[in-house]
Nucleic acid binder design. Sequence first.
DNA 1: TTACCTTGTGAGTCCGGTCTCAATCAGCTA
DNA 2: TAGCTGATTGAGACCGGACTCACAAGGTAA
Lengths: 365, 365
Amino acid sequence: MAPPPPRRRDVTVSDVAKHARVSKATAARALGDYGAVSDTVRDRVQAAAEALGYRPNELARSMNTGKSNTIGVIVGDIENPYFGLAMRGISDAAKEEGFDVILVNTSEDVDAEIDAVRVLLDKRVDGLIVAPASSGETGHLRDVYNSGRPLVLLDRRVDGLDVDVIEADMASVAFEATRHLVDVGHRRIGFISTLDVKGPYHDGLDLRVSSVADRLQGVLGAQQEAGIPDPGSLVRFADGSAGIRPVARELLALPDAPTAIIASDSLIALAVLGTLQELGLRVPDDVSFVMFDDFEWTTLTTPPLTVISQPIYDMGVAAGKTVIARVQSRAVPERRAFQATLVQRESVAPPRASAGGAIEALSAS
Amino acid sequence: MAPPPPRRRDVTVSDVAKHARVSKATAARALGDYGAVSDTVRDRVQAAAEALGYRPNELARSMNTGKSNTIGVIVGDIENPYFGLAMRGISDAAKEEGFDVILVNTSEDVDAEIDAVRVLLDKRVDGLIVAPASSGETGHLRDVYNSGRPLVLLDRRVDGLDVDVIEADMASVAFEATRHLVDVGHRRIGFISTLDVKGPYHDGLDLRVSSVADRLQGVLGAQQEAGIPDPGSLVRFADGSAGIRPVARELLALPDAPTAIIASDSLIALAVLGTLQELGLRVPDDVSFVMFDDFEWTTLTTPPLTVISQPIYDMGVAAGKTVIARVQSRAVPERRAFQATLVQRESVAPPRASAGGAIEALSAS
DNA sequence: TTACCTTGTGAGTCCGGTCTCAATCAGCTA
DNA sequence: TAGCTGATTGAGACCGGACTCACAAGGTAA
């Protein structure tokens, strides 16, 4: 590796001005494209800038315009394809409007999120898109709001915070998916999500992530409507993605194991399917399976999976357009409620006649 | 939506200084944690800052320190899990060192990349990580180098540019994977990648993306070594992800269709597998399949897929650590050559005895 | 007591732009 | 020819911090 070139002093407006033999103010006007400048002078200044290789210092510019043309995005996990795709949407929307995006990954850690908000605010981003890790801690989100900078929540609401939220209607599609399972005969339906709550699920538990709460509400609601007793008993939360497989195993080892499982996102689905595979359980013969999010690989498994599809990219675009519209005090785009749909493929079938659990079914076959 | 709160003027050091009845310089010292300040004054200033809700303006700070504590990352497509995972690594490394990350997505468009480099340089990022869309246009990368700011290339080299590169050794695993196919009897091996080149592949074609060129070199090399004539005839490049399926179809419809296909990344693999599925071709019975990148879903297909695994996350971390080390003029971390490995699962089998192409095999069954 | 440090503090400059304001100048009107 | 108008231009303040420098106060050594 060659020695790095000396970091030369950058060319500034003053340098350009000197070279073009005009005042700094005039050069700045010609370069910044504001105020009035005669054509001849403008040309001379631009030629000088070209010759010197002048590049504006956006930091300095931001400092006195108060606009950084940058929005901050705070998500739990960009490795999660959900956020990868949403990020793509945000990024595309931002580019179209001439904005840049600072991305911060919090690993779903509230403290990291609080920190991220502070840092981005200090960096003077013009607006923020956050998928909040918890609806419990919201002081930092209020700070954003109070700073006067627009905040848009993605995928998750926070109660009592009156800001734009981009989310899909999860409760009704979860209801629909669950009723589909009930309709084909399932009475023991498991639901697995990742969430940092301690202890088993019980009525009235504060879920802290609205998108999960909504999904669960739909799942439970459909079962209650069907007269299934205590559907909450087959709900499980894993703390972090490493915890999913153990939780899935535990659920499937139950004497009254579920005959169908709903996975709350694609990462969970992957872990659950992996566990099923390890246990030698077949989908849908032994266990029916439904998952949230529709990525291409879900059509390539055997069988293709029944999924709940959300317009993730579009939601990302909407989030981007919305913050930027707010930043520019323009009317926000109309469309902010997104529809999720149940895509029926082949991972749902009637449960085995056997009354036993999944593992039991296995030994019976 | 309630009306946004008025964007109040931010609290500055001067405000804090006034409130604590000290000079601006002293307040700045107490807050910025530099220079000498007596304990009593420091406490008074910090109390005042607390009371006023002072937050430093990082823009102003960056302006005269010349450091923004921000690195720029330019990738072709964050929707691609490869970059999602790498981004996660970069992001984690950055956070550890107190850096933020500005992410720009170029859609693999060179002009967008040139623009992105300019914008990020103007924003005064301290360093840049780029997965260059082309080794052809490199002027903008030279500009980074000349600006004196460190540049790290991820996944792809650029000839004649003496900067740090984080990449895995693709040529040798590609060779190994291909020889594996040859060993089980394949003599017609297809290779599909996305790349913006016009016309069919021919010897000496400038591939412009080193990671693809390396893979191809290994693929072709193994076949040449085995005495397979004209292996280049089954190489196909699609222009953008939309073009993969047509290309795959064309390849499979050939009278001398390949009996095995190698997909150059996971997005391509998805499209190829989808096409295979549509055509009713089974893996590995009708066509053997090997792909680059090892994501969890590749174990859930039927059959599980033979893949080439790279330590993507670690490479992201290395890229992050490397730029930051350069920014701080520290020694760069030792490890910069990464090993990719062939993970044999069940998508490779001996070709059918039939001499015909894949489609022909279909009708024969 | 005087000289010499050391530590703490304030005044003011600088970073690289934007922006206000006053001055200059050419063209026109009366 | 004096007066007015609009277009250009330059001087300098300002954004919010970091940092240089001069100076004052207190402590120590000779």
